Simulated assay, not measured.
Amino acid sequence: MADSVAVEVVDAELVDEDGDRALPALPDTPAAHRPLIGRHTLLRPDAPIPTTAGQPTYTEADFRISQETADLIDGAPPANTSRTYGSALGQFHTWCAESGRVPMPCTTATFVEYVGHLVQRDLAPASVQVHMSAIRSAHPDGQQPGMKEARQLLRGHARDWARRRAPRKAPPIRTAALSAMVATCTAADERERPKALRDAALLTLGWGMLSRRSELANLLVEHLAVEDDGVTVRVAFSKTDQAAHGEDTFVPADPDTPSLCPVVRVRAWLEELRRHGITSGPLFRHITRGGTIRPRSGPRGDFLSPDAIGNIVKTRARLAGVRAPGGRAVTAHGLRRGPAQEISEAGGDPTAQGRWKPGSPTVLKHYIEPARGRTNNPLHAARAKARTQKAI
């Protein structure tokens, strides 16, 4: 069989070999319309087969978006998610360049090989999952790599990880620790007064609403309704409410313990804001060393960042000498875990107060079931019965 030879077809005139007389060009023949059917197409008995005939013709204008829309898209993900995904994608692109692979859109083999690379580095399973999500989310719709083999790798790694390591959870900030931290919110002079009032309000309100640090960072003065019996907080959006439907959380007053009462502490901070001429906008703001609250520029403007909220909690815990077992440092998530534990141990359900989704397996696994295991452990009944029988 003769070897196939690639040929290039070009538009040309047909020329008579006997002279220079040009022959008439062949008329253009329209290409046959291609059927638009696939494995999942359903055709009714009287329906024609759909084809490319009549399909719209798109121009560049159909694919362009304005700079304003591009800016809105870029600003849509939470800042911490953007940073995390950006870092993960940067590492993936570097690895692809070193491995001689195409990063976007990548093949399933490249994706699986990179997940294997992360597993061999012994990254935490949650970190591997973040890398996987970042890579797939960066791909155009319909061009994401397959997940089957990558998930198998991740599941195996998670089992091996669980055998070798104990899970690390944020240390809870329980009532005693909260009291010690709030006790550090004192002012030796007028310069220290604003920070002391802000931090005391942040700690007591955050603890009472089982707050995430991002929720505290995005609160507005207008989101609060302070009454004698408690504070109603409007959480405009959260980790489990990315569509920003909003949810109200009521934080009851604690008249028996004024130092930890959110009503007392929030009212004092709002009064301090009014003294600085602030009656609206971000609730928790940056304060200078001189004790002034000044407007700030930058992406978040006058809002504190979630990282700044975390630093405030860490600083107050350090000043109070509060540390977790094993010497671990306290973090802002302790404001969520501590009260959730205490509610569960009292027989309650922290789901609504912490704005978890109804039926959240996180609440059941990490709070309600452990509390029940302590208070309603079947061994208590067995031992009580044994003591009764022994006394007879």
Rank of each mutant, 00 (worst) to 15 (best):
G116E: 00
T292Y: 01
C106P: 03
G321Q: 13
Q143T: 14
R44E: 14
L153M: 09
L364I: 15
R213W: 02
A126D: 05
A150D: 01
W95V: 05
P370Q: 00
P24E: 15
P171N: 04
A187P: 11
M1E: 12
M209Q: 03
V119A: 08
H40Q: 08
I37E: 11
E369Q: 05
R83L: 09
A150I: 05
P252L: 06
L26C: 04
P262R: 06
R374K: 09
L210D: 02
L219V: 00
H93L: 02
V130K: 01
A47I: 00
P45N: 07
T351V: 13
R34G: 10
V322C: 12
T52C: 05
G90A: 15
R323M: 04
L203A: 01
P145S: 10
K390F: 05
A170I: 00
A32D: 05
A236W: 03
L14K: 10
D248E: 14
A47M: 02
P299H: 12
G301Q: 11
H245S: 09
A236C: 05
P252D: 08
N80C: 03
K239E: 08
A324F: 13
A352P: 00
A244K: 09
G246W: 09
T51C: 15
P172I: 10
P56I: 14
I278C: 06
G359A: 01
P299D: 08
D256M: 12
T51A: 14
L202F: 03
P125Q: 08
G301H: 11
R265C: 07
A162L: 02
D241I: 09
T69K: 07
